[in-house]
Design a protein around this nucleic acid. Structure first.
Lengths: 207, 207
DNA sequence: TAGATTGTTAATCGATTAACAATC
DNA sequence: TAGATTGTTAATCGATTAACAATC
């Protein structure tokens, strides 16, 4: 009933089904069963059906799911049926690496601009984008029309950058610093913390 | 009792407590309570005590925890009391960004070497490291003594690189491609999938 | 001692898995 | 029709939260 009632793990898996369905479509597959999805993703067929059930009924008993139709429906549910512009703040090594990351394209994320606060970088080009002054972020917001922001600055600037992003109409922030961001209602933030991932690996690594 | 019985979410939080404790130590704090940890991390005091209880008894009722002692114990539990050498395969923008990432130092991760398969890159320097031929990974394994590997190659090479890493004695792999790696018993792999993070953000972003 | 805070137990919550009637 | 596969319900599992006796 309430699509907003889906648990977060379900949402994460829906994104994986979407990927799986794109691959199926490239292979020319018309139809796939929940068991077919299990084989390709490792997620059990029961889990697949349960996850989909949060959002509606998409399949036909005895037949499975129409690949294109399910792809389309899931893309809409995830808001991934339209392209999204992303801005990146922090034009260091990480920020410029992300600016050119090819993996965004499949989900229709387009890096619209790259910002920094270093006068030595501002005005230069990186990955085909001009590096702009982060202080001018607000002036560019209408032209850019970006709702996604990536923070690839030093940790010390993260909260300040997040505040600027929120001011500029960004309502989804991916933060590569380990800082826990404070964001207002209506804005979501997630962290990607590489050191943390290594730390968890360290625990589970044998010896 | 069995330290291996701790749930994964607990392990993730222990890594956060460790960070918190390092900050406390830098501030010269002698002692901290579970409620103090709650204030600094946002994780409830009850959850903190529950998490710690999987590994032993570390505090004194009425007093709290000795910062240095707990830091030391948790670091050992996470195997983060000794330095770890990390190799990176893929000397593109992302790999070189990670090679110079300052955030690793606090947890004593040291990037020991950077590999690629591109003859145009092999022999060049990046972030103070010589880029070496990934085909020679095995020959360097004793000298490097690395147990952690980061995959920052195109997705198409990820599994092959993982296999090489396993051969070279790596038993913890952090994979930046979206490929689900097949690794033998005794080797752990985790993925960092930036596009996936944006996709999940897309669902939760308003509108 | 009185107050603070631990470690742990029991209660709750939420997510996953198993199972199956409905149906294409 | 018979076989396949869905959507859903009930059972299980696991993690979080609440509560409190023990104790510094």
């Amino acid at each position: 009933m309430s699509p907003l009632g889906a648990p977060e793990p379900t949402v994460g898996r829906i994104a994986l089904y979407l990927r799986c369905l794109r691959a199926c479509q490239r292979e020319g597959l018309q139809t796939i069963s929940s068991y077919g999805i299990e084989q390709r993703t490792g997620i059990s067929s029961g889990q697949v059906r349960k996850d989909l059930s949060y959002f509606g009924e998409f399949g036909k008993p005895g037949r499975g799911y129409d690949v294109s139709a399910l792809l389309d429906r899931l893309a809409r549910i995830m808001h991934l049926h339209v392209p999204h512009r992303v801005i990146i703040v922090g034009a260091g090594h990480l920020g410029t690496a992300l600016a050119g990351y090819a993996g965004f394209a499949e989900s229709r994320f387009e890096v619209a601009a790259l910002f920094d606060n270093d006068p030595a970088k501002i005005g230069k080009q990186a990955r085909g984008l001009e590096i702009m002054d982060v202080a001018s972020l607000n002036e560019h917001k209408e032209r850019l029309g970006a709702r996604f922001g990536i923070i690839a600055t030093p940790a010390a600037s993260a909260q300040q950058v997040a505040d600027l992003m929120v001011q500029a109409g960004i309502n989804a922030i991916l933060n590569f610093t380990p800082v826990r961001l404070r964001v207002p209602e209506g804005v979501v933030a997630r962290n990607v913390d590489v050191a943390h991932e290594l730390e968890v690996l360290s625990y589970f690594a044998s010896e």
